[in-house]
């Protein structure tokens, strides 16, 4: 196995493109190193992207935030402006692993590991985040939900990798929230998860909404019917019930050791309701 730590994006793309065997990106390493240690993967090439310019910083851009692909969870939590604008994204990213893991894990890694239960991904999808991809060709930006292709699979092509995630500017009275269900209180993997991103008008009526679900399908789900249930409402009980039903209906989970189909469909609706209430309050709405 070769370990490379390129200094430029172009060099990283070249290394990844030229590798004939299995290559893996190393940012935080909280997935890849564990997979290697457990014998799940045996890469021929590891490309450490932490030395690439801009990969470890959060930069203001067009009223939003460009988060480098190697920015750790703990770094997100320490960025006051980011936390204020995107509390749901930050709380989601901060649920990954444990306090120790937070010192290393990254949102880009969480996204590219392509677990259906990745905590930061539903929040990023609800936020309408975009991802910048480097590779053999020119850099391109895509919507975050286009990256996961299925458990452990992404749509990234040979030689491509994520360099940053962009969270857009916020209208006034906007907020997001993320909730997951786990059987214990921390250090666990989501059985079901929901992220809600809302914008309100001056009267507290929802004018825009995005609802994304985790761990209830092979990839994260963006549920338009769930968003539609909220738009125009002041989060009345009827709207919440509609939201919950839309989420339960959209969920296509599997039966496994972490939960049954019926349980996941039930709980994801409950989580969406609760997340919507939190986001609504954060956006200044009064219930």
């Amino acid at each position: 196995m070769r370990y490379e730590k390129p200094q430029t994006v172009a060099e990283a793309a070249r290394l990844l493109s030229a590798e004939k065997g299995l290559s893996r990106i190393l940012a935080g390493g909280t997935d890849v190193l564990v997979q290697m240690k457990s014998g799940l993967i045996e890469p021929d090439l590891i490309v450490d992207i932490k030395a690439l310019p801009g990969l470890r910083s959060i930069v203001a851009e067009a009223g939003g935030f460009r988060v480098g692909a190697a920015v750790a969870g703990a770094q997100l939590a320490e960025d006051r402006d980011l936390k204020k604008a995107w509390p749901g994204v930050v709380e989601a990213a901060n649920l990954i692993g444990s306090t120790q893991v937070q010192g290393r894990c990254t949102m880009a890694g969480n996204l590219c590991n392509a677990s259906p239960a990745a905590d930061s991904v539903p929040a990023l999808v609800a936020a309408g985040a975009t991802v910048r991809i480097a590779g053999p060709g020119a850099a391109r930006d895509v919507a975050v939900e286009t990256i996961p292709a299925g458990p452990g699979k992404t749509t990234l092509k040979k030689g491509e990798f994520v360099t940053s995630i962009f969270l857009p500017a916020r209208p006034a009275r906007s907020a997001d929230a993320y909730l997951r269900f786990i059987p214990r209180s921390e250090m666990d993997i989501a059985v079901a998860a929901a992220a809600v991103n809302l914008t309100l008008d001056a009267e507290g009526r929802v004018t825009a909404a995005r609802v994304a679900l985790g761990a209830v399908a092979p990839t994260v789900l963006l549920v338009e019917a769930a968003a539609a249930a909220l738009i125009g409402s002041k989060l009345e009980e009827a709207a919440l019930e509609k939201l919950s039903a839309a989420c339960s209906a959209a969920a296509k989970p599997i039966d496994d050791k972490r939960g049954s189909v019926a349980y996941r469909k039930d709980v994801v609706g409950v989580l969406a309701k609760r997340a919507a209430r939190i986001a609504y309050t954060r956006a200044g709405g009064k219930q």
Binding site: P183, R184, S185, E186, M187, D188, I189, D256, K257, R258
Partner: peptide, 16 residues
């Protein structure tokens, strides 16, 4: 055995 590890064999953590 489906859960041969502390991730899915859930002993309580301190906060539980």
């Amino acid at each position: 055995l489906q859960n041969a590890g502390f991730l899915d064999y859930r002993v309580p953590v301190a906060s539980d």
